[in-house]
Amino acid sequence: MIPFRIHTGLVAPLDRANVDTDQIIPKQFLKRIERSGFGEFLFYDWRRLPNGEVDPSFPLNQSKYNGTSILITGKNFGCGSSREHAPWALSDYGFRAIIAPSFADIFANNCLKNGLLPVVLEEQEVATIFQRARELNGYQLTVDLERRVVIDRENFLASFPINDFQRECLMAGLDDVGLTLRHDADITAYERHRGH
């Protein structure tokens, strides 16, 4: 996993609540058996008009947001299917952090396993970022995991919650499986004790 300590990047707004993982990566792209190459299919149906042409009104299709790496969006982002293809697609597209008032549980978990940081901010803070990302050209934010804050070049400063364990894992790019395998003796003892 790529470690995450501090990241500065261009912010793209997706002003919708309850964005489900079916929208993030539609099911026709789940048949691949690799982890890579999902980025071009990110928000596939929303990026295109019914006739297949690119929809110029969708933020990620606007030149203003070319090269974006931070997504600002509505509450309950990532609800629905547990498909890890959703964070794979977001990462592959170039996102390093997603900011929203809340995230669906499984999606947030999946992000953390892939070095993609889900940042929970207050509704009011999210609204401020939305406004700036829309109105300013080249609006950038810095997400500082070490200090657990989001800042911009103006006067914006907001702190976000993340537990120590997850923070350490992300900052060191630690592999969960490797960590757990260190406790092999505990697992074996549990299995014996329980008669497994």
């Binding site: 547990s82 498909r83 499984i106 978990n109 396993k113 969960d176 757990t180 299995e191």
Partner: peptide, 14 residues
């Protein structure tokens, strides 16, 4: 429900 990284975690560690 779990994601694929967690599927790997369970396969390797139960």
């Amino acid at each position: 429900g779990i994601g694929t990284s967690e599927v790997e975690h369970v396969l390797a560690t139960q």
